[in-house]
Design a protein around this nucleic acid. Structure first.
Length: 561
RNA sequence: CGGAACGUGGCGCAGUCCGGUAGCGUACCUGAAUGGGGUUCAGGUGGUCGCGGGUUCAAAUCCCGCCGUUCCGACCA
């Protein structure tokens, strides 16, 4: 491809609206342009990358027996009513105004619709059906370029099995395929065991990439591979050390002191000497939740510890329950169930509310003064805490979800009446799995992980072209002739070559080549051509060396293998 | 959806406070020089100043309303 004729609108400056590296570079390198918030056009160069990623996905899913479909994005709303997901998706689902259609945000219903009444026998299974298709979600806040859009390309696969044991097999096949896909793409990723969440089901794994642009926060152990969303991640935590002597309980007048900050300032003590109280209502029962002053309650863990419905108590309820306003509630003398974070286990000499407005208590010994207290893990894991698997240190950071594999079970088949007959002639709902990969996210994550101050650094697998060929002076006939023949020869040899044949300064071309980031650059200039030599630059290392023209093709092959 | 910022040629910005002929850099076009890291000179093209309304002799500038984009938060199969 000749760059003079190829639509690659590069930008020298960083567009105002782009913040994260991948977004900036996709815009600057002319891969994409925004049409509206969260809606991107892929230009030829960007689309080449998308096609390469899609092809890798296609090969690996085909390899495990997947069959590719192409499904409509426009769906009758009534199919989505069958599973009650019009309501479940709420405002995230796009609705068509002048006909009763929705734009599909995923395709469980449509795949199940096609399986229903057709896959009637256990003999018809297993099946793995997939597609690579545009999804539509009315995201409240699109962000980070293509990483979170209102319209995005997703590979979504669905498995249909006659039993949960067989579902495990289909799931394992996808697990393996996903690892191959991301390995082949050259991504550094890790796998998080996630809770089943709102999709319903029995198990799932998320394939994540570490990135500042990520929207999930995960705890990860490098040495044993343990990874979990911080919502559920466990960690080994030293509880607050019990001091040798327990002081006497003492009531302190603390006028207008409401927060832990104010209390610490007023009494000149450290947050870690205080126990923060929160009152929640769990299925009608008031419960005091106690946590170290400088920490926050993890709502997911709290709900898991208590079970049932959990909501914060209203201010009027607080007074009735504890006898004090919000700022003065504490465990001593609290009449209802009390649970505390593990970090507070058996702690003493604590400060907390007195259950009497404008009073606090010092010298609280949870062992002595709070009989019946129960301990749970109620806080989020933090960097540096111990891994529960191997004892090494956990790291907590943000990450982007690239893919998600999911044991659905019978949620959709049961709701939609997609049943089959087993060996005994009994009807059962089909046991399903669903498996997604964000295709543009693969590209964005690769760029997040592989760029420098000059631009993108593609590997040969995802690079839109293998080689960027640069002719330095298009006014010199011998340079043009040499570049032209190298261009043709490289193409004959099966390489994808982007030939910069523009009338431009050398520096301009070098910088554009570094921005676009093809793995190899071949530079043809007048001086070296006189010695029958051309220069090769390896984008990743910055290494450059000269080679004789006739050795060029061998050298290129070596470097691109 | 709550909070904040921004909106002026393709891109990056100044001008807005204090109303008075729409500017700069870059990109683009023409010509010339240059030709190994965004070179130089000369001459050009291109803008409903986000949209609508109001105030005024006069609005990019002041007032009101709306729209768009981004960031933080909420939300997120």
């Amino acid at each position: 491809m000749k760059l003079s004729k190829y639509f690659v609108p590069t930008l020298k400056e960083v567009p105002n609206d782009a913040v994260v590296a991948s977004h900036v570079l996709m815009l600057r390198s002319g891969m994409v342009r925004m049409l509206s918030a969260g809606i991107y056009s892929f230009l030829p160069l960007g689309y080449k990358v998308i096609k390469k990623i899609s092809e890798i996905i296609r090969e690996e899913i085909d390899y495990i027996g997947g069959q590719e479909f192409h499904l409509p994005a426009l769906n009758p709303r009534e199919i989505w009513e069958e599973t009650n997901r019009v309501e479940a998706f709420g405002d995230t689902l796009f609705h068509i105004k002048n006909r009763d259609y929705v734009l599909a945000p995923t395709h469980e219903e449509i795949m199940t619709y096609h399986a229903r009444n057709v896959m009637k026998s256990y003999k018809d299974m297993p099946q793995i059906w997939y597609q690579i298709q545009t999804k539509f979600r009315n995201e409240a806040r699109p962000r980070s370029g293509v990483i979170r859009g209102r319209q995005f390309l997703m590979k979504d696969a669905y498995s249909f099995d006659s039993s949960y044991e067989n579902l495990d097999k289909s799931y394992a096949l996808h697990d393996e395929a996903y690892r191959k896909i991301f390995d082949r793409c050259g991504l550094k990723y890790f796998v998080v065991g996630a809770s089943s969440g709102a999709m319903g089901g029995t198990g799932s794994e998320e394939f994540m990439v570490r990135s500042e642009a990520g929207e999930d926060t995960v705890a990860y152990c490098e040495s044993c591979g343990y990874a979990a969303n911080v919502e559920v991640a466990a960690s080994v935590v030293d509880s607050k050390k019990r001091e040798e002597v327990s002081e006497e309980i003492k009531e302190i007048h603390t006028p207008n002191i409401k927060s832990i900050d104010e209390l610490c300032g007023f009494l000149k003590i450290d947050e870690t000497q205080t126990a923060k109280s929160r009152v929640v209502i769990n299925d009608g029962e008031p419960i005091l939740v106690l946590i170290l002053g400088n920490e926050e309650v993890n709502e997911t863990k709290l709900e898991k510890a208590l079970g049932g419905n959990v909501r914060p108590a209203h201010p009027e309820e607080l007074v009735k329950i504890s006898g004090a306003d919000a700022g003065s509630i504490g465990p001593v003398g609290f009449k209802h169930r009390i649970i505390a974070d593990l970090k507070l286990k058996d702690a003493n000499n604590l400060y907390s509310g007195a259950n009497k407005t404008d009073y606090h208590i010092s010298g609280i010994d949870l062992m002595r003064d709070v009989p019946g207290i129960e301990y749970f893990d109620l806080r989020s894991a933090q960097s540096g805490e111990g891994c529960t698997g191997c004892g090494s240190k956990l790291e907590v950071f943000s990450a982007i979800e690239l893919g998600h594999i999911f044991k659905l079970g019978t949620k959709y088949s049961a709701a939609m009446g997609a049943n089959f007959l087993d060996e005994n002639g009994e009807a059962h709902p089909i046991v399903m799995g669903s498996y997604g990969i964000g295709v543009e996210r693969v590209a964005a994550c690769f760029i997040e992980q592989n760029h420098d101050e000059k631009g993108i650094v593609w590997n040969k697998v995802l690079a839109p072209f293998d080689i960027q060929l640069i002719a330095l002076n298009m006014k010199k006939e011998d340079v043009v002739n040499a570049a032209e023949s190298v261009y043709l020869k490289l193409k004959e040899e099966g390489f994808e070559v982007l030939y910069d044949d523009r009338e431009a300064q050398a520096g301009f071309k070098f910088n554009d080549a570094d921005l676009l980031g093809m793995p190899l650059q071949i530079v043809i200039g007048e001086k070296k051509l006189k010695e029958n030599k051309v220069e090769i630059k390896v984008r990743k290392t910055g290494e450059r060396f000269d080679t004789e023209l006739e050795n060029l093709y061998i050298k290129v092959k070596e470097l691109l293998i």
